[in-house]
Amino acid sequence: MFVKLWMTSNVLTVTSVQPIIEVEQIMRENRVRRVPVVDGGKLVGIISREDLFRAMPSIFDPSISPETLDHAGRIEAASVMTPAPVTVEPATPLEHAALLMRSHKFGALPVVKGTELVGIITETNIFDAFLEVLGARKSGARIEMKIAHAPATFYTMLQVFKKNAMTILGITVYPDFSEEHQLVTVKVQGENIEQLIDALWEAGLQINRLNKEGSASGEEP
Rank of each mutant, 00 (worst) to 15 (best):
V38N: 10
V38C: 11
D39E: 10
G41S: 05
K42L: 05
L43P: 13
L43K: 04
L43I: 07
V44L: 05
V44P: 09
G45Y: 12
I46D: 00
S48E: 02
S48Q: 04
S48I: 08
R49H: 11
R49N: 09
R49S: 13
R49I: 02
E50Y: 12
E50W: 13
E50N: 03
E50L: 09
D51N: 07
L52W: 12
L52R: 07
R54A: 15
R54Y: 11
R54P: 00
M56Y: 14
M56V: 15
M56K: 14
P57T: 08
P57D: 10
S58I: 02
S58D: 05
I59T: 04
I59S: 02
I59W: 04
F60M: 03
P62H: 12
P62C: 03
S63R: 14
S63F: 08
S63Q: 10
S63L: 08
S63H: 10
I64R: 15
I64F: 04
S65N: 11
P66C: 00
P66D: 04
P66R: 14
T68H: 13
T68E: 15
T68A: 15
L69H: 09
A72G: 08
A72M: 03
A72K: 02
R74N: 05
R74H: 03
I75G: 00
I75S: 11
I75R: 15
E76I: 00
A78H: 06
A78G: 00
A78D: 03
A78S: 15
S79G: 09
V80Q: 06
V80L: 07
M81F: 06
T82Q: 06
T82I: 12
T82P: 07
P83Y: 02
P83A: 12
P83Q: 08
A84V: 01
